[in-house]
C-alpha cells in the first residue's frame, strides 16, 4: 500500500499525459470542436478537479482520459500506455487493471446486490472471488448491514457509497469521478466527499474528478479549468 506522502519524497510518476488533444464531432450545422488542443500531466497520487461551465468539454475530457472515448487527434498516455491508438478491447483491459469510476447516477447493476456489485470488477478480471475484500470495503463505507440489499432498496447516498466501494475494489491506480455528488443532497454530498478522500488517502489512488461544486474542487490538490474546450492558463 502506498501513501500519498510517498510522492513527496520521490520523483512523482506520470500517470496521465496529454498532448495536443482534440475532439471534433460532426453535427448538422458542421463540425463542432469540443476540445481544442489540451495539454496536461497528472502525477501519481494527485487529486485533480476539472471545472468549467456547462458545455466547456469537461465530461468529454474525462471520458477520453479514462479511455471510455477516443480523441480525434492528439496523444493520451495512461500508465505509460498510449491509449489514443488502442482499440476498445485493449482499452477495456487497461481500465480493468488500472481505472476506477464513480458516476453521478451511481450506475449500479440493479440485478446484483450491494456485495455483488462491489465484487464485480474483480470477477470481470477472472480473479478468485474477493468476497472478503468486498465485505471489508462495504464496512469501510458503513454498509456492513446492507450487503444483500439491491440498489432499489438503498437510498441515493447509500448507492453512491456502494459505487465508491466498487470503485476501490480493484485497487485502481487512478480513479475518475463524474459529478459524484450531483444527485445527492448537501448532507449526503458531504459524507460522500469525505469518504472519497479518506479512501483515496488510504489507497494512494490518483483522483481526477469533474465537478461544479467548489467545496469538492477545494479538496483537490489541483484544479484544471476548461473554457470552450481549452485549458485556462
Amino acid at each position: 500500500m502506498r501513501s500519498s506522502l510517498y510522492g513527496l519524497f520521490f520523483m512523482a510518476r506520470n500517470v496521465l499525459l496529454v498532448e495536443g488533444l482534440r475532439k471534433v464531432v460532426p453535427t448538422a450545422a458542421g463540425e463542432l470542436v469540443i476540445l481544442d488542443g489540451i495539454d496536461l500531466e497528472i502525477n501519481d497520487g494527485e487529486s485533480v478537479a476539472i471545472v468549467g461551465a456547462s458545455g466547456s468539454g469537461k465530461t468529454t475530457l474525462l471520458g477520453i482520459l479514462a479511455g471510455l472515448d477516443t480523441a480525434t487527434s492528439g496523444l493520451v498516455k495512461l500508465m505509460d500506455s498510449e491509449i489514443s491508438g488502442m482499440d476498445e478491447e485493449a482499452r477495456a483491459v487497461l481500465r480493468g487493471q488500472h481505472v476506477g469510476f464513480v458516476f453521478q447516477s451511481f450506475q449500479l447493476l440493479t440485478s446484483l446486490t450491494a456485495l455483488e456489485n462491489v465484487m464485480l470488477p474483480v470477477e470481470l478480471r477472472g480473479d478468485a472471488l474477493a468476497q472478503d475484500q468486498a465485505v471489508e470495503l462495504l464496512e469501510k463505507v458503513g454498509l456492513a448491514d446492507r450487503l444483500d440489499h439491491y440498489p432499489r432498496q438503498l437510498s441515493g447516498g447509500e448507492q453512491q457509497r456502494v459505487a465508491i466501494a466498487r470503485a476501490f475494489a480493484s485497487r485502481p491506480t487512478i480513479l475518475f469521478a463524474d459529478e459524484p455528488t450531483g444527485n445527492l443532497d448537501t448532507a449526503n454530498g458531504e459524507k460522500i466527499i469525505d469518504l472519497l478522500f479518506d479512501l483515496n488517502s488510504e489507497f494512494g489512488t490518483t483522483i481526477v474528478l469533474v465537478t461544479h461544486e467548489s467545496r469538492l474542487a477545494d479538496r483537490c490538490s489541483r484544479t484544471i479549468k476548461l473554457t470552450a474546450g481549452k485549458v485556462d492558463r
Binding site: A66, L68, A92, L109, L124, R125, S170
Partner: peptide
C-alpha cells in the same frame, strides 16, 4: 457499466 469496469467487447 460492465465495460467501464473492464469487460471487453468479446466478453
Amino acid at each position: 457499466i460492465l465495460k467501464t469496469l473492464g469487460a471487453t467487447p468479446g466478453q
